[in-house]
Nucleic acid binder design. Structure first.
Lengths: 140, 140
DNA sequence: ATCATTGCAAACACTTTGCATACGC
DNA sequence: GCGTATGCAAAGTGTTTGCAATGAT
């Protein structure tokens, strides 16, 4: 993921590519770790000392409204962010807290309505023990 | 749903059936509206004026640990509760905020592992405009 | 000069915690 | 009386808001 790709994506969506916006989107595109606001803040704050969380919140909201990122409510107490918009599920490890993308060919994603309700979006969340945490458990 | 059913369920799970616990579980069983804490508080508070939200939080946590209710993170800013433990999906109307149960025969619910991660639970969430809100939109 | 972006601090909302009180057996 | 259940108030935490300061053209 080159910086130019990020800039181009922002321009396509008619979002002025300011330094902050580029860095935030770049972080999401490169890491793909479904961060919360604090993770982004800690990571980018090193490069941009004056960065505020308010800007991160504002920026992510703009990104969501433009369809560049989606909000994940896979945690009870905080929102996480995902710059991958293609249909996929998410797995959250209840031990280490990591969130992984899950490629899943499910008809759920293709449903346009259910019980008379018009569907505009969907999320599939899995919970459990991730590969690494399961192995640790076996060893110990 | 009779009061006796609620008491019996609590006793099965070795939870002392206090008045508060009975009322809270009864509310969940009868209404099945996936309430948040405030909805429960406002509803039951009429009958039990001294009820505190702390008790509701405590009680729901006990219920969850005993497998009587599940927590839904279908909202960005609050937790909702569901006393139906059978596999099903949820639909949240982004217009009116209502959350509906969706009966869904999906293989997603039967998966025990994915990408090497051990699955212990899953949630399927749909978002969109519910039947009522869609109709209103058509009329206006 | 003007308009959008950013940042600080306060406000907000939901939830948790500590500890004192009340209740049930 | 003793142990649990409950409740109040305060603290904690993630997020939003108001408004001033900064930055870009």
């Amino acid at each position: 993921m080159m910086k130019n790709d990020v800039v181009q994506l922002l321009e396509e969506k008619h979002i002025k590519p300011s330094l902050h916006r580029i860095k935030i989107l770049e972080y999401l595109m490169v890491h793909r770790n479904h961060p919360n606001v604090d993770m982004i803040y800690k990571a980018i704050g090193k490069e941009i000392p004056t960065l505020s969380k308010t800007t991160i919140y504002n920026t992510l909201k703009i990104f969501q409204e433009s369809g560049i990122v989606q909000f994940l409510t896979v945690e009870e107490n905080e929102v996480r962010f995902d710059a991958t918009m293609q249909h996929h599920a998410h797995f959250r490890c209840v031990t280490c807290g990591a969130v992984h993308d899950i490629e899943l060919s499910s008809k759920v994603f293709e449903m346009e309505s259910v019980d008379g309700h018009r569907i505009t979006g969907s999320q599939i969340y899995f919970f459990g023990h991730c590969r690494d945490c399961s192995q640790l458990r076996v060893i110990s």
